[in-house]
Nucleic acid binder design. Sequence first.
RNA 1: GUGGAUAUAGUUCAGGUGGCUAGAACGCCAGAUUGUGGCUCUGGAGGCCGUGGGUUCAAGUCCCACUAUCCACCCCA
Length: 423
Amino acid sequence: MLTKAPRGTRDLLPEECPKWVFMEKVFREICGQFGYREIRTPTFEHTELFQRGIGEATDIVEKEMYTFLDKSGRSITLKPEGTAPVARTYIEQKLYNKPLPVKLFYITPCFRYERPQAGRQREFHQFGIEAFGSPSPLIDVEVITLAVFFLKRLGLDSLEVRINSIGCKRCREDYKQALKDFLFEKKGSLCNTCKLRLDKNPLRILDCKDPCCQKLLKDAPVILEYLCNDCRGHFDEVKKGLSAVDVKYSVDPGIVRGLDYYTKTVFEIISEDLGAQSTVCGGGRYDHLVEECGGPPTPAAGFGIGVERLVMILEANGLLDIPPIQMDVFVAVLDESYRDYGLQLLYRLRRAGFSAETDYMGRSLKAQMKYADKIPSKYAFIIGEDEVKTGIITVKDLATGEQEKVPSDKIETYLKNKIRKGC
RNA sequence: GUGGAUAUAGUUCAGGUGGCUAGAACGCCAGAUUGUGGCUCUGGAGGCCGUGGGUUCAAGUCCCACUAUCCACCCCA
């Protein structure tokens, strides 16, 4: 236990971190282009926020939250998703007094107590955006498009975008009733979990993977036919907008997000490279969350992208082959008597902005060269008797094996020229 | 929460029906005469064989429990 990371958590080693930095950089760039600004919220919140925001009856709140009492008895929960905390900030910091819409993005860890499997851990990370204040379907379009552009810029161009509308409170109630009525007589053929869902949350039956349930649903009423005029018009505008900006999508009436706050537009971006989990990005509109949490009535929309899942997809497609970080120079000294000279050179290089390393293991020159090759380094500077005496450094290009003599005082310009050429 | 598979060096894996002083490859370290890497050769370090019980003269090998990992269900990113 002492030397084991907790179940469902992972270490990111130095070879992996550059991949994350790369994805984060691209995400920040895209968000910037779309006018979204970064926000960072606490890792934990008061438990009530999630109970109220996500919904008491959801799986997340019922059984997946990392909840504990702090030393003064407050109930605290590690954030299981990114939207509710940002909505809380929006209210608490009165961001509704800023020019609307308020467009925010975040990169955050999330925590859910679940059994780990492919594409699912207990601590995972999300790239997310939220746009507050506008009911316009063009915001829905922007949110979906930002996700698509982001994934495209990473090199993924064939992911599938699926959209649906689950309507507002009113049309959803009508639809729920219709679905219940339809399924009631066929109740016997439903799988066991769906029998329970019939009363509790009939919408959830729609994305059941059980083949029997799927068969029954073939002739089931479709929510899109139960949308009120407002919701129908909104959905039409979203579809029109997506076509206008050339985002390919399909309408999938089976999409029902598992969080209670969604209204109208919901969407998923899915990939085949994720094992049983296929969703890499999920989101939609949530017009009542802010009000529900005590803020002014505020329509909003957003998405979350699973970073670990994104890594899986990118790696499956060979899109995360980031070259290892190279040192510019390794300063090798023949033996301890040249150590001081080597150190001075080392720090001169570092001060000048180069990345430079030296030996701390008391290795022989040969072993130092070997090490320089492995870390890896572009050049090795060799310091011995001749160099110290003449002030002319032996510089070896470790890629080509070529060796030159460079006067010590010209070293910086020499390196600058070489490295700028892309060596 | 449920089900299946797995658990041996840093890593990937060998170790039929119990008898090992537990192996290989890669990696790591050190050498192959005199100031130099990548290839090659030689040598070395490194394993409470997941943890705890049990069966047995004898257990890495059989049995049980626990834990962890992987996969799937549920659900989601």
